[in-house]
Amino acid sequence: MVSAWLRAIRVRFLLASIISVSIGLAIALWKHDALDPLHALLTYIGVLSLHASVDLLNDYWDYRSGIDKVTRRTPFSGGTGVLPEHMLSPSSVYRAGIAFLIIGAVIGLYFVAVRGIAIAIILAFAVAAVYLYSTSIVRIGLGEFFVALKGTMIVVGTYYVQVGALSIEPVYAGTISGMLSSLVLFINSFPDYEADRSGGRRTLVILLGPARASRLFIAFPSAVYIMIIAGVVLQILPLYTLATLLALPLALRAYRILKARYDDAEGLIPCMSSTVAFSRIVGIAIVVGVLVEYLLF
């Protein structure tokens, strides 16, 4: 039972939210020498709860809509399979999703009391978007945009909770973090093309078609690196964040595989693996680069 719930929550994908929170905390340390441990812990719990909620509710609605019954499941796409395989009941997954949503909302309300209206705006967006993601957002073609915005707001919200103010650095780094998360969603939607289309979803892959969408892939890492290099030049990001360039071969490998195998679910597994690794390594390198700058200067 425990393993089924860990699978349903998609534990390994929670790392994206952990990285986004860590970026916000690192920038707060770097720019203001500010770190409230209790608030940092609550931020991690709240953000991870909201992340778990959206994944659980996504599984529930995919099962209800029939998408889970026709999708080809891979280690990175096609849902968790806990409902089609009858490992958990739909009602229990739905209730767990709502419970995690409430946990995230309660923590958010605490931060609204502590930090005010800015957190209230972020919280309202988060709660509404989590609940509406599978039923509305991905059906009007905004899934990738939502994920990018979510990543940005996690970094900005984390920074604001620590500092009580806004600045360009968390917004800039948050945009990069959001694009990395959006890239993972984008690549993982290729194997789900037929199932998503039959279920009424409108991902970028469906809107563009797999062949044209495959050529769009390189725009994501290109935009990420342009922002990182420009950020260093403009002194928005520390010089040490250029270590993110070490992950470039992973993005290029993923692009080569995608161009050749965009319509082959099994053949795309190495591509999805490289893309996830690229996203995580770049995000972690940003955290480390900012912390090195803080420690040295």
Rank of each mutant, 00 (worst) to 15 (best):
L149S: 10
S17I: 03
V161S: 05
L246C: 10
A129D: 03
R215H: 14
V147N: 03
V47N: 14
I107N: 10
G24N: 13
Y131A: 11
R256G: 08
S134H: 08
R115T: 09
P210D: 08
G164I: 04
L42V: 07
S92W: 06
V21Y: 07
L132A: 12
L237N: 09
P249H: 08
V11H: 13
I284V: 08
L242P: 00
S279Y: 06
G231A: 09
L234Y: 15
I176T: 00
A40N: 08
S273R: 14
L239T: 01
A243V: 01
A120G: 10
G200F: 06
L123V: 00
L245K: 07
V93H: 07
I269L: 08
G267F: 15
G199K: 13
Y60V: 02
E194D: 15
A99V: 09
D59G: 09
K150A: 06
I284S: 02
Y159Q: 04
V161L: 12
G199I: 02
A113E: 09
V161E: 01
Y110G: 01
T43C: 15
A126D: 00
A99H: 10
T43H: 09
R10K: 13
I27D: 02
F145Y: 12
S167C: 04
P170L: 00
Y110P: 05
A129H: 10
G178P: 04
I281E: 01
A230D: 08
S3C: 05
